[in-house]
Design a protein around this nucleic acid. Structure first.
Length: 461
DNA sequence: ACGAATGATTACGT
DNA sequence: ACGTAATCATTCGT
């Protein structure tokens, strides 16, 4: 469509003269059509000097309309609505619209500058990954809370065995919650704003030409803006998690020792399973639970978690292996304790079997691990020390240990092994390679770093 | 204050 | 995933 035709339409509807055409064109040209080859053989005559006021009035009229269109977005919504309606009904509207279309076509070509560089922002990706890894983003970690609930239930009402851990998790879920609500808010706001803008643009496209491409571009801009806001949210969330994490780790770094009882229990297990001190998952759990139960919760002693038990055994194994001599005394001590347990258990068993049927050996087991594999223990100590000290040792320790061991005894199962002398179990510790060898391959290659029995055969000490 | 003991973490291997 | 070995950081006993 040519400009002249459009202007002709325009002037037709206004029943304007040729002069008026020229004036209109001039005034439009004033907008941004300078240099445009509008003429098309129709030369622009200079304005006649005599049609002054009338022409000026119309010029004013057109200018007004244009001005109104230009400033329509600056006005309040109601005003704009009213004006828009007025403009839409204006006689000159279709013509003007066409003019604007053409103008736009000529000038709008240059709007092709900032093509969205969509390659995802590496930093955003980093943040996303971190949030995902930290469990803030991504699927609801129902597994974790369910597991925690299960653990709490399993421990039979006993408090969660990792206060700090649950504290950390609580804080993390808090962060997570905030993050998600904020994110949702942003998303909602973004959508709302986008639809609003789109509606607005569609509405405006009736008065001024707006291509779908432009709307798309605008939407893209909005999305980018909002995603930059989201990035800020993600960033601050990450920071919060990092702070929480570091604080949590700091708290854990400030380690506290286990309680005496907890250490006792762990040591008992260790030395009674010296041949294979690798507690199973269940055994570890059992140990952790026992330690937590034994320990009075109000104390400031650290309650071992399953992880702690694993750590403890890891440390113990390595340190024992590194310097068996140093642990000799401890080993003897716990051997004696276990012996005491066994003795008590044996006595109890005897009593029991006297009172009841002797054919129910393990009936009293309360589902605890086979704590003192005493056969293992006795032989182990014997071979380590070279002579049979155990009787005396037991005698020396019975009185002093009875009280502290009572609770263990009550929980002890499998005492029949001790009674029956389960010699199938080979007493051994480390093999020649420095590792704990298989329980089924007996060996005499027990090599403490110092002479066997050279120090600790003295039981009175 | 110092060193030993000790719980936790890390790097690495399987 | 779990174990070992080395190491860190704190606590404990002196």
């Amino acid at each position: 469509m040519s400009f002249s035709i459009c202007v002709a339409q325009c002037t037709d509807s206004l029943a304007a003269t040729m002069d008026d055409q020229a004036r209109i064109m001039q005034s439009i040209g004033g907008v941004s059509l300078a240099g445009h080859s509008v003429q098309g053989g129709m030369a622009l005559p200079p304005p006649h000097g005599h049609d002054g006021t009338d022409g000026d009035g119309r010029k004013q009229d057109i200018g007004d309309i244009l001005h109104q269109i230009m400033t329509i977005t600056d006005q309040s919504l109601d005003e704009a609505q009213a004006k828009k309606h007025g403009l839409n009904c204006h006689r000159m509207k279709p013509a003007l619209f066409s003019v604007l279309c053409e103008i736009k076509e000529k000038t709008g070509l240059s709007i092709r500058g900032a093509q969205e560089e969509d390659p995802p922002d590496p930093q955003l990706m980093r943040l996303d990954n971190m949030l995902l890894a930290e469990g803030v983003a991504g699927p609801e970690k129902g597994g974790g809370s369910a597991a925690a609930a299960a653990a709490a239930a399993a421990s039979g009402g006993a408090a969660d065995n990792s206060i700090e851990h649950s504290d950390y998790r609580a804080k993390l879920t808090q962060i997570r919650q905030i993050y998600h609500t904020e994110l949702e808010k942003y998303e909602q706001a973004c959508n709302e704003f986008t639809t609003h803008v789109m509606n607005l643009l569609r509405e405006q496209s009736r008065t001024r030409p707006i291509s779908p491409k432009e709307i798309e571009r605008m939407v893209g801009i909005i999305h980018r803006k909002f995603s930059s806001i989201q990035m800020q949210l993600k960033q601050s969330t990450c920071e919060a998690v990092m702070i929480l994490r570091s604080r949590f780790l700091d708290a854990r770094r400030k380690r506290r020792n286990f309680s005496k009882q907890a250490t006792e229990i762990l040591n008992e297990y260790f030395y009674s399973h010296l041949s294979n001190p690798y507690p199973s998952e269940e055994a570890k759990e059992e140990l952790a639970k026992k330690c937590s139960i034994t320990v009075s919760q109000v104390g400031k002693d650290l309650m071992p978690t399953l992880q702690s038990v694993s750590n403890w055994f890891g440390n113990k194994r390595i340190r024992y292996k590194k310097n068996i001599g140093k642990f000799q005394e401890e080993a003897n001590l716990y051997a004696a304790k276990t012996a005491v347990n066994a003795a008590h258990a044996a006595a109890a068993a005897v009593q029991n079997s006297q009172a009841n049927s002797p054919t129910t050996p393990n009936s009293g087991s309360s589902g605890s691990f086979n704590l003192p594999n005493s056969g293992d223990m006795f032989l182990s100590m014997q071979s380590l020390n070279g002579d049979s000290y155990q009787g005396a040792q037991v005698g020396a320790n019975v009185q002093s240990q009875v009280d502290t061991l009572r609770h263990v005894i009550s929980q002890t199962a499998g005492y029949n092994d001790a009674l029956g002398g389960n010699t199938m179990y080979s007493p051994h510790g480390l093999n020649a390679n420095g590792g704990w060898q298989d329980a089924t391959t007996p060996s005499s290659v027990i090599s403490p770093t110092e002479g066997p029995g050279s120090v600790h055969s003295d039981t009175s000490n």
